[in-house]
Structures are given as C-alpha cells and as structure tokens.
Design a protein around this nucleic acid. Sequence first.
DNA 1: AAGAATCCTTGATGCGGATCAAGTTTTTTT
DNA 2: AAAAAAACTTGATCCGCATCAAGGATTCTT
Lengths: 234, 234
Amino acid sequence: MTEGQTSAQHSCAIGNNLISCMEILTPDESTLLESKMVVVNYRKGEIICKQGAPATQIMFVREGLVKIYMESNSGENLVLHIMPEMNIIGLSALFEGNNVYQFSAQAYINTRVQVVDIQTFRQLIRTNPEFSLKIIALLAEYNTIISGRFFCLTQKQTYGRLADVLLCLANRIYKQRKFPLSLSRKELAEIAGMSVESVARILTRFKEENLIEMECKHLNIVDYDRLFDISLKG
Amino acid sequence: MTEGQTSAQHSCAIGNNLISCMEILTPDESTLLESKMVVVNYRKGEIICKQGAPATQIMFVREGLVKIYMESNSGENLVLHIMPEMNIIGLSALFEGNNVYQFSAQAYINTRVQVVDIQTFRQLIRTNPEFSLKIIALLAEYNTIISGRFFCLTQKQTYGRLADVLLCLANRIYKQRKFPLSLSRKELAEIAGMSVESVARILTRFKEENLIEMECKHLNIVDYDRLFDISLKG
DNA sequence: AAGAATCCTTGATGCGGATCAAGTTTTTTT
DNA sequence: AAAAAAACTTGATCCGCATCAAGGATTCTT
C-alpha cells in the first residue's frame, strides 16, 4: 500500500505509452494521409516549429528526439516536454480561435518528422471516431506529463530534479543503466531547471557518493535505489 | 508589433474561451446524456474528486469555481487550474490504461456539477465528431493554460506572480477593477505559489506604492498599468 | 460578551541556489 | 600541431524568499 503521489512525477517529461494513432486509419484514410503528408528531416539543433508562428501544420515525430519548450523574453527557455518517436507536435494549435503555435520545438538529435496540414488532420478527426479518441488520449497524457513536470520543478530541489533526469534517461530513453551522455551540461541544466554550475557540482557530488560513475562520455548508474530515493525526497 | 511571449502567460490559470460542447449534441444524444447525468451540489471547500481515486466519471462544472490541484506527500498542494462554469473535470483520466484521477478538485465556492460515467462520455465522442473536436479543443486549451502557469511560477518572482493573480481576478472572474477579495491570504499564497507572509508583505507594499486600495474586504486596482507592468517583468 | 481560535502583519534569521570569477579540460578551427 | 573557442569544474559571494517568531486584528464559539 503505497501513496505514490510524488513518486509518479518525473521532471523528465517523457511519456510511457507510445500511442499509435496511424494504425487505426482505414485504407482510404491512410491513402489520403499519405498523399498529403510530407517527410522533413531535421538535423540536431534545428528548429522544427516556432512559438508565435502561424499554426498551419501538425507534425508526427517518426524518429529522433524533440524538445518542446516555451520561450521567454529574457532568453531563458522552459522545457515542457521531451518527445521521442510516436508523438505529435502542434496539437495545442487545435484550440478554438487559436492560430499560432503555443510552443517551440527543436531537434535534440537528427529527427524525421511527417507533416500534414491542419485541415486534413481535422478531417481525420471528423471521419474516424477511433482516431479522435486516440488524439484525446494523447492530449490527456500530455496534460499529465506537463503537470508532473510542473510539480517536479516547483516542489523538488536541485538534487532531486537532477537525479530524476538521470533516471529518466536511463529508464525511458536508453533503457539501461549505463548509457552515453549525449546531452551537454547546459542541456541537462535546462531540462532540470537549474544553472550549469549546479549541474556540475551535483554530478561531482553524485560521483563522490558512488551513486554514479562516468567514463569516456558514458554514465553508469551504480546505486539505482539511492538515486531513486533522492529523486523522491526532492 | 509586440513580441507578447511573456505577456500571454498568466499564473491565474483561468481560460478565456468558454467552450460549449453540450450545444453540439443531437436531440437523441442530449436525451441520452440527460438520462445518464446526475447533478451534484458541492459546498465551499468540499472535495469533488481525489487524485489517485478510481476514475469512473467525467464532471461538467455548471456553476461555481473549482480548484484543480496536485497533492504532494509533504502536504503542499500545487494548483494547476482554476475552473469557472463551462469546464470539464476528469478528462485526464481518458488516457489509455489510466484508470485513476490524476488530479484532485475542490470547490472554492458553492458549485454545481453534472456527473456522467466515462463510458457514456466515450460513447458521445464516438458518435459525434463535432463533440469530439470540442473536447480536443478543450484539452488543447487546458494544455496551454497549465503551461502558461508553469511558466509563470518558474520564471517570475513573487511580486510579478501576485500582481498576476490580482489582475486575473479583476479581469477574468469579477470583470471589474474593484472586487470583493473573498480568497484568504492562504488561498492567494497557494495560487501564487508563495508563503502567506510573502503575500501579506507584498500586498502592504502594493498599498504603499498606491497600486491598490483595500477597504472593507474589497480590493480596488488603482494603477492598473503599473501593476500590469510588474506582472510582466516578474 | 468573554474566550478561543484563526487570520493577518511585520521583523529577524537562515538556506538554497543563482551569479560571478577564474582556472582547467575538451573540442573545433585553421 | 598550434591557436581559439567552447565546455566543464570549483570556490566565493549574494539575493530572494521561506521559515521562525511574536504581536495585533477578526471571526467563531458558547
């Protein structure tokens, strides 16, 4: 009997459930979609869509890793969501009277995206109830993910947040305890919502405490349980 | 030509667009829904739904004001959203494999809610594409609202956040610059994500600076422009 | 109306973490 | 391979805000 309220929250912001909405389409709809869709390849670091720009397209992430974020006037970005393949960018532009993207998206690594115009997308929702149920489920999940991240960044403090990010990388992206640390300190800092210096300090501390090891750009989680504990306590 | 990135974010978390999805239903669907729906009245302070409890129902807020929040083990709550009438509680329970409420809901004031079971709700989505488009729009809006609040609470500091909340009360709830301050300092503190003492201190400061006046439990925004400026700068 | 309880205000203190600064290592450029 | 640039580390300082504390004002109780 666990309460499991805090434990469910991950600052990492990657969903568990890969939702496949394409498989649901009828052959006719698939054909329509194929004819309308365009594949675009983005290189690491390139901007996929820009907050405030006219929202005319919905984008399916087919391969890669995408950062969804809000830009502020001060230059600090707030990372809302990190999306691997099987996710959709631009759904927030579907709300009534809203014709601009609410968030920006950028490729963390080389990323392949399928683009379709919003009208075609709306059409699919209208003609295929199962498809629209999937989209609703996806949006509901995004809501939960962003809220969980919101919780982490406001309630936990630096050690917990960074532990969280490391665990998330291990669990959800690389699916093993030893993985290549391709993100820079700056990127880690942005995700965990702290300064670059804090990231460096905390990582050093984690090494001293034998929670993690780092050798040739690979990070190895040695004491998973204690790291998990830190991520819970905040 | 304004950038308007920061300015769009309100910690207040109340949507502008009241989305009416009930008007879209066919007579048959309305009849079905009426027969399944139950009206429940909550008094000020009562819990409408509890995070972690089995999610079996979707709730339409018809009258009142509802706080949507996440509970933490430490006892601190995170307010995600403040909903007046014409909003829906429990949509996040629609995502796949998820059978518990992700958030708690509590009535700020006496509130009337219409309750329907999730199956019936899913049925409506399946049979009426326009209804499901409305739900998608609503979810997309919730996403934007929560993200905006996320941004405020992590990027702005106390003065800006409290100014934000006051402006939001004036603009979105009471729709006038002088309004009854029915929320306690504690409730204001929870919404603005700060301590009760900070709220008191900042309100005193706002009074000293002639930004606001307070007489017999009414708050009057005297210098709207400067308060708005503070809410932007953070 | 007296007492209790809650709410509100104001000052003093302390802590987390950002920022600043300066040196070291790694990567990129040419 | 040398030079330049970027990334990383570590220490020192500072600031925002929570927390603690204590007195004053309101509201609730009986």
